[in-house]
Structures are given as structure tokens and as C-alpha cells.
Amino acid sequence: MSGVVMFFMQIINGLNIGSIYALIALGYTMVYGIAKLINFAHGDIIMVGAYLSLVLLNTGMHWSIATLLSILGCALLGFTMEKVAYKPLRKASRISLLITAIGMSYLLQNSFQLIFSANPKPYPAFINLPSLKLGSITISSNYYTTFIVSVLLMILLTLFVKKTKMGKAMRSVAEDEGAARLMGINVDHTISLTFIIGTGLAAVAGILYSNCYTIISPTMGSLPGIKAFIAAVLGGIGSIPGAVLGGFILGMIETLVKAYISSQLADTIVFLILILMLVFKPAGILGKNVREKV
């Protein structure tokens, strides 16, 4: 394989993993923008989505229904999580919310480990479209489906936030919760809705991810979760286009480092990027610098 073809293959790999990071990062960024909370359990929703769809697929259900049900299941989980664990602590200190979120993440991981055992399970991939041939490059159906589905969802989400009334409510709560409440916006509903959309997207990401890698385990969500968070920070946390951009950039960097520098050091380099980003431009590429008010 010539160097150029190899490079293009890597770019396609990067777009694939990048679109998954972007989907997860969207959930992080929306929840952070509105509830000011790093939802550590967000990465584990990917895993929950993957396992739910595995169980449903194993019952012989058609993939479309299984996917829809897993998305709904994850959204319900996100909704409950917010109501039970995060909402009571909305007025408490930041650190207590973070600790609760970590607790949630571990609760999900470990309960799934008890139910399904820690061993990885094969996932029956259901995306079986013909692969795309571009000259000497072959793109498998997983890759372009992941890319197309993610981009489509991102466009839909942007339209939702920009054009609909509920989207407007979300933006206003993110900007100033108190003022939004005074304008008659139901803040509780808006936050719940954000969690539902965020976790729904994470479920889609989980299903796409499992289709690509075809092996799932209870801890599969934690690393992509952390990386998606890094992507959200990179793009500017709280910003939707930022999360998408950050996701793609991170996916690209990770794939290229893996291919050309060292596959073992890829994670280290990704984490270093996070630290450097936070040192030099904590607001991220598209984020705004907000001063803390007294």
C-alpha cells in the first residue's frame, strides 16, 4: 500500500472515531452548558446503550426497533439519573456534584459487570451495507454509516437548539438560569430535556461504536467518555459546534499518532493535549472566556 493511500485510510479512520467522539462530546457539552456539571457517567451511557441493544438483538428483534428501544432506555436512564442524583445537589458545592457523578459512573460500570460479567462479549454488528470503493481505497459500511449518522444528528441537534422554542429555552438556561426562570421558562424541564437528548446521543454513539469494534465490555465507555470530554474541552465546553470540531480533531490526532508515532503513547498524547489546551486556552477553540461573577 502506498504512503498516500495509507494516509487516506488513516484520515478515514480518524473521521470514524472522531464522529463517535463528537456524538459523545455533544452530550457532555450540552449538560455542562446547562447544568454546569461534568457528567462522568456520560461515557458509561455508551456502554449501557451497547448492552441494551445487544440484549434486544439477542431476543431476535429487528435492529431498527432494538436501536430505538435502547436509545429510549438510555434517555430514561439519563432522566432518572438527573432526577435522583443530580437535581437534589443543584445548589450544593461543585465538588459534591462531581463526586456524585463519579459515583454514578462506577455504579453503572459495576452493576453491569455483575449482571453481564466482566468478560467482553461479542456484539452482532448489523450494519451490512456494501462497502464504498474510491479508487484503491475501500471504505467499509460501518465507517460511512457512522459518519453520516453522526453528521445528520449533529445537524438536527443544531437546528433543534437554534430554531425551536425548547432549544431557545435551553440556550437561555445555559446563559443565565435565574433570568430564564424569571422569564417563565421551566428550568427543571429544560435540564431534564438536555439530559434526555445527551444520553440519547450517547446511546447512538454506543451502538455505532459497537458496530465498528464488535466487542463490548462493562468498562468500554470510560476511555471514550474521557476522550470525548477532552474533545468537548478542546472545542470549547458549552459550545455545540465546538464539541463537533473538538471530536473530529481529537479523533484525527489520535489516529495519526497511533499510525505514525506510537500506538502505545496515543492516550498519553491525547491527555497531554488536554493539559496544554487548558494551560494556554482554557476556553477552548470556539469557547468564550467567561469571567466569574461575584
Binding site: R94, I230, L278, P282
Partner: peptide
């Protein structure tokens, strides 16, 4: 502590998490 000084609590948690993973990754290599 140098990068964390500029940051608020949430980012600090992530930076320290990243630091822990970096140490482990470096030791692995």
C-alpha cells in the same frame, strides 16, 4: 499544580485524572 491554578474545580478534576493516566501510561511504556 501550575496548569490547575488557572482553572476552576471541574477542569482541575479532569487534569488530575489525565495526569494519573499519563503516569500509568508512561510506566507501561
Amino acid at each position: 499544580s501550575i496548569p490547575t491554578l488557572r482553572l476552576r474545580g471541574d477542569y482541575l478534576a479532569i487534569i488530575t485524572l489525565a495526569f494519573g493516566e499519563i503516569v500509568r501510561n508512561v510506566l507501561l511504556n
